[in-house]
C-alpha cells in the first residue's frame, strides 16, 4: 500500500531553494513562517488548501491553543469547503466534502438542490484529532490507517501521538506559541510530491504577503 501511495503521485520536478537534502526517495525541504494572528494562520492554511488535490497527508503538531484547528479551518476554505470546520477532539474524525474551486459556488441556503447539482465534487477532507489517544496502536484499531492511503486529504492534529505510524512521505507542520498572538509554523515536506507542494506554497505565500 505504501509503495502505491508514492508511485501514484510521482512528481516531475525536484523542488529547489529550501531543499535540505535531495535524493530520489527522501527529498525533504523546510519552510519557517511566523504568523502574527489567528487570521493570518487561517490565511496560510487557505493558501495551502488551495494547492491540495487529494491524497495528501498533512500532520499538525503543537500544544493546545497554537492554532492547529485554526490552520485546518483555513485549509478547508482553500479546498472550497463551505461548512464550518470545528474541532474534532471529541469525535476524533470529521469528514468534509470539498468542492472543485473552478465551479461557481451557489448560495447553499437559498439553493440547496441546485448547489449540489452544479458543483463538481472535490477531494474529501478528513480532519483527525489524536488529542485523546494514549497508544499509537489505537489509530490502527480504529481503522484510521485506511484513510491515510485513500484519495481524500488527511489532516491530523496531534500527529506526534502516533509518530511511528506515518508513511515517510508527508507534510508536517509544527506550530509553537511565541507570544499571545504570535505563532511559529515550521513546515517540513518529505518526498518529492510534498517538496513540490511546499515550494508552490512558498511561492504563493510570498508573492502575496511580502508585496
Amino acid at each position: 500500500m505504501r509503495a502505491q501511495f508514492s508511485d501514484n503521485h510521482a512528481t516531475k520536478n525536484l523542488c529547489e531553494g529550501a531543499i535540505v537534502t535531495r535524493s530520489q526517495k527522501e527529498a525533504t525541504s523546510t519552510l519557517d513562517i511566523i504568523s502574527h494572528s489567528s487570521a493570518q494562520t487561517q490565511r496560510l492554511g487557505m493558501r495551502l488548501g488551495d494547492l491540495l488535490r487529494g491524497g495528501e497527508l498533512i500532520l499538525l503538531d503543537g500544544q493546545l491553543g497554537t492554532g492547529k484547528t485554526t490552520f485546518t479551518q483555513g485549509l478547508a476554505k482553500g479546498m472550497g469547503i463551505t461548512e464550518i470546520v470545528s474541532s474534532p477532539t471529541f469525535t476524533l474524525l470529521k469528514e468534509y466534502q470539498g468542492q472543485s474551486a473552478t465551479t461557481t459556488r451557489l448560495d447553499h441556503d437559498k439553493f440547496p438542490d441546485q448547489a449540489s447539482l452544479t458543483q463538481r465534487v472535490g477531494p474529501i477532507l478528513y480532519h483527525f484529532d489524536l488529542y485523546r489517544l494514549e497508544d499509537p496502536e489505537e489509530v490502527v484499531d480504529l481503522g484510521f490507517e485506511d484513510y491515510f492511503f485513500g484519495s481524500g486529504t488527511c489532516v491530523v492534529e496531534w500527529a506526534d501521538k502516533a509518530d511511528l505510524l506515518w508513511p515517510n512521505e508527508q507534510l508536517r507542520i509544527r506550530l509553537k506559541m511565541m507570544s499571545e498572538t504570535k505563532r511559529g509554523l515550521l513546515l517540513t515536506a518529505t518526498g518529492l510530491r510534498y517538496c513540490e507542494l511546499l515550494q508552490q506554497f512558498q511561492k504563493n505565500t510570498y508573492a502575496t504577503t511580502s508585496s
Binding site: 476524533l92 485523546r132 484499531d141
Partner: peptide
C-alpha cells in the same frame, strides 16, 4: 485514568 476518552478501549 487517561484524561479523556480512549477510543480503542471504547470500541473494544
Amino acid at each position: 485514568r487517561y484524561g479523556g476518552v480512549v477510543p480503542e478501549v471504547a470500541s473494544r
